[in-house]
Design a protein around this nucleic acid. Structure first.
Lengths: 388, 388
DNA sequence: ATCAATACTTGAAGAAGTTAAATATTCGCC
DNA sequence: GGCGAATATTTAACTTCTTCAAGTATTGAT
């Protein structure tokens, strides 16, 4: 996280942070309910909430709903004032920047894109700056309420220092992207790995809300996984974690670019699917879209490629379920545009391979609008405001 | 954890717990060093330490070593008084109870065993009680300093309530073992899954000390794994976690008793190895010891069985490394009596299949004295004394 | 002997939370 | 309309835990 001008953050005593995150992620709740939920006295919640209300982060809802049996003073639930502050999120890909503006509740309020032609650090910083300007212009609300920018990109990222240790597609090593972007934009910047950012978004604002442990699997060119265990994002001691794509699921499978054999990605990654489909059809220029079309059209050989891919993904997901036992798993990513071809195979092989009660772990399989990646970046930025 | 008479525990303010666990797991340290390590003021450490010293849990070491450049008052490091309190640990297997007495630093001071003929709850409780008596008799120190008993067994265990939800080998369902054993013995009882207990022991008193994340893999009839992530043991939301044995590593592998296919356990579990060896040799009564002997003697076909098993284990371990990125991994268990047959294959396939920097995760592969399981149970009991 | 350096202790002050009592609002009932 | 039970929120006094600032203790070097 890297400083621009600061607006006076809601970070305070632990109780204040706890109250704010609870209301932010779990929705409006009365002080008594929060006290029960957080193991605090209601007096403590009252005290923690006041400065948050004064700063405009929380407000009291009109007491509409009666909860109890009937008698008693009605509750005045605390709710987040979503428009108190806005956040820019930018996903950096090899050839494009995708940007969004989100409110405090991570609702997207504006979007914009810019092509990226040059992976040079300065060029990328320039485009990021221009995209931020575009977003500020497109944003209908009060620009002064935007002071934070989240960046997300694939690779090995050190969130605390904002350092890009290694980015394969930009060919960057040890680029201090956080500080550089902060200087450039004057905003407080966070940088995070894209899959982890998406996981954070899902954990705070999506299906992972309330889950002590939770996994998000992304399927596309790469196959990755973000993990939340015991309420915290897993980082991996060598910067490696969630590499579900390189779990071996087939001893007789193809060699993978990582040096392994039978990796999930070498069977179910977009490139792997294309190669296999070309092989089966004898058409060396087949694209992924054409392969999907053939499979949907009933081409048995190509369908089999997707079946095999779905099975491999299912095995990988089962490995996650068997090892960490998440409360739920979300499967998503560009690759799931071909949702219909994968879904049932993923589920079948997951259920076969998940051990005992692990098979009860609910699986959400759904495609992912590309802006969602940028929203993940914004979500990390929101977290950086809330957490100490 | 279930109460017997209590001796006045060292649990107190958070700082006291932190100081005590730090000294217990990381060895003697001066107050200043502890303050730095724990992010406290040295005044806080002084205050936290006093009651622990008064109760006899800590003492000051003679200031032997000079740390700094030369000048300055020498430190008086705080150290744990290991003989302040002793703990009984018992591992329950299908046909035997293995018991140990450990001191506060988890050093084994006495051991005993009892055969187990009857899986009936009362029979087991009786034998546990008698084993505890045996241990009290065999124990050379002050019996009055034993007030806690840890039990470990495989299966689905709820540590907080002491409930055995399901134990396959005893055919128990929902047996409140903790409370029952507490009533029977008058001791404060903890109950934990055996693999998790072993992991806890290794995390506090073994190779996992100081690791933010850490994995212990046990190889034997079953193949299991205990995981520590972000400093905490992973439990799994459905009680399932660490089931490395049922990760699929070979799409063409044998059917597993779990319903899956090509599971690590179906290739590398002791039973699987015996079956394969019988198949390859045509000797339907071959035992595991004979299979090991044949392999060591150079029998190619049987060696191949161990090679395949080692490879399967290596793939499973690589999956752990790729997913959670532990600081280090310990591989152990009865199965590793055949250490020499496994070791290199585990390492080779781990290194091939671990992604990028994950391959840097150090692997300790070593056999496991059976008493170690009981020590794990004692370690959990120690933790229950220290933690709130 | 004196000084600088480091370790430890002490007492006052501050932060954060709890308890208990007061206050606020509502419903059901007369 | 008034009363009492029920529930929510606030307030103020108090507790607990920690830090801060200032002192004490002990050593090596000069």
């Amino acid at each position: 996280m890297f400083p621009g001008r600061d607006t006076g953050a809601p970070a305070g005593p632990p109780a204040a942070t706890a109250v704010f995150t609870a209301v932010l992620t779990e929705g409006p709740a009365s002080r008594v309910a929060l006290a029960r939920r957080l193991g605090l006295s209601s007096a403590a919640v009252t005290k923690a909430a006041r400065p948050l209300i004064d700063l405009g982060y929380l407000h009291e809802l009109a007491a509409t709903e009666r909860t109890g049996p009937g008698a008693g003073r009605p509750a005045s639930p605390l709710a987040v004032r979503a428009e108190r502050e806005f956040f820019i999120g930018v996903k950096i890909t090899a050839d494009e920047l995708i940007g969004v503006v989100c409110d405090l509740r991570a609702q997207v309020r504006a979007t914009a894109r810019r092509p990226l032609n040059d992976p040079d650090v300065d060029a990328v910083l320039g485009e990021v700056g221009r995209l931020a300007d575009d977003l500020l212009n497109a944003f209908p609300g009060d620009r002064a309420r935007i002071s934070r920018l989240g960046l997300a990109l694939s690779g090995d990222i050190d969130r605390t220092t904002g350092l890009v240790r290694y980015s394969p597609f930009l060919h960057w090593r040890n680029v201090p992207l956080g500080p550089l972007a902060a200087r450039r934009t004057g905003l407080t910047v966070t940088v995070e790995n894209d899959v982890k950012a998406l996981t954070a978004a899902e954990h705070w604002f999506g299906e992972g809300v309330g889950a002590e442990s939770f996994a998000l699997v992304t399927v596309g060119t790469g196959i990755g996984c973000g993990l939340v265990v015991n309420g915290r994002l897993v980082s991996g001691s060598n910067g490696v974690a969630g590499e579900i794509g390189h779990i071996a699921v087939d001893a007789a499978g193809p060699d993978c670019h990582c040096g392994g054999r039978g990796c999930v990605e070498s069977i179910a990654g977009t490139d792997a699917i294309v190669w296999q489909a070309r092989d089966r059809t004898g058409r060396p220029d087949l694209t992924i879209d054409e392969a999907v079309a053939l499979a949907r059209g009933g081409h048995e050989q190509v369908r089999a490629v997707f079946t095999r891919a779905g099975n491999a993904i299912g095995c990988g997901i089962a490995a996650v379920a068997n090892l960490v036992g998440p409360t739920r798993i979300v499967v998503s990513g560009e690759g799931l545009a071909a949702y219909d071809l994968f879904d049932s195979h993923i589920r079948t092989s997951f259920e076969r391979q998940a051990f005992g009660a692990a098979a009860r772990c609910p699986l959400s399989i759904r495609p992912l609008p590309f802006e969602e990646w940028a929203r993940g970046a914004a979500a990390v930025s929101i977290q950086s405001l809330v957490l100490p």
